[in-house]
Write a protein that binds this DNA or RNA. Structure first.
Length: 226
DNA sequence: ACATTAAATTCGA
DNA sequence: TCGAATTTAATGT
């Protein structure tokens, strides 16, 4: 159970719900604290909760053959994920790991399905979110091999500021250069060089433990996203 | 891989 | 409780 004002603050989708749906959402959600570096759920486990990041940062990862770790994506405050596994009622296909102390919000499957069946605003939100993810997925496939390191870093930053997936993101990202590298699939030194290039181009400024984006549009263009 | 610098933590007053 | 000193973490080359 999450108090109404709290839910409204951490979940943008809840703000458009009809009153009775909103009440159900409050009743079907709860929050939990995690320290950094902890695995929330592992690949292959059933985990039938829709999850949102209230604060902090998580990443989704898989282990490739040889045990090398491969980051797929990351979610920061305001982002919700896992709707695919909940909708299809299937096992998780990747690990969820906190990158730093994090508060997660969860919604049980029953509530999720009820909202999906009964709330138009909620369904709309889901479609939009799934569609957004699809676009990202395709963009990643297209460009993974075509973009240089700077392009990939730019893409990651643009994705992390996606207004649909992260409705509450402002223009600041609290990601270390190492974390950016992990997500972009480049080494930290390469990420550092790429960031300096982008800074020189006036798209962002570097800060300790994070970056501030100055020009979203250019960043997107560099990343090749629509 | 190493050197530098910012931040967090500890310790002593 | 404040500030200096030490240690840890992030950055730059």
């Amino acid at each position: 159970m999450i108090p109404a004002d709290r839910l409204r603050r951490i979940a943008a989708w809840s703000r458009d719900l009809e009153p009775d749906s909103f009440e159900r959402a409050c009743a079907g959600c709860w929050e939990r604290d995690y320290p950094g570096g902890v695995t929330i759920c592992s690949m292959g486990e059933p985990f039938e909760l829709w999850s949102g990041v209230s604060s902090g940062l998580i990443k989704m990862r898989t282990l490739s053959m040889g045990g090398k770790e491969m980051a797929l994506s990351s979610v920061h405050a305001g982002g919700w994920f896992g709707e695919g596994s909940v909708l299809k009622d299937e096992l998780r296909r990747y690990d969820i790991v906190t990158l730093r102390p994090t508060v997660l919000a969860f919604m049980d499957r029953k509530t999720f399905m009820w909202l999906h069946d009964n709330s138009l605003p909620f369904s709309r939100f889901l479609v939009q979110q799934l569609n957004e993810r699809l676009g990202i997925f395709i963009a990643m496939l297209e460009n993974e091999r075509m973009l240089d390191a700077t392009g990939r870093v730019a893409r990651v930053l643009a994705l992390m500021l996606n207004p649909i997936l992260y409705p509450d993101a402002n223009n600041k990202l609290d990601l270390t250069q190492e974390e950016i590298g992990l997500i972009a699939g480049v080494s930290r030194p390469t990420a550092n060089q790429a960031l300096k290039t982008l800074q020189a181009a006036g798209m962002l400024t570097l800060e300790y433990g994070g970056i501030a984006v100055l020009d979203m549009e250019k960043l997107r263009a560099y990343g090749g996203e629509t």
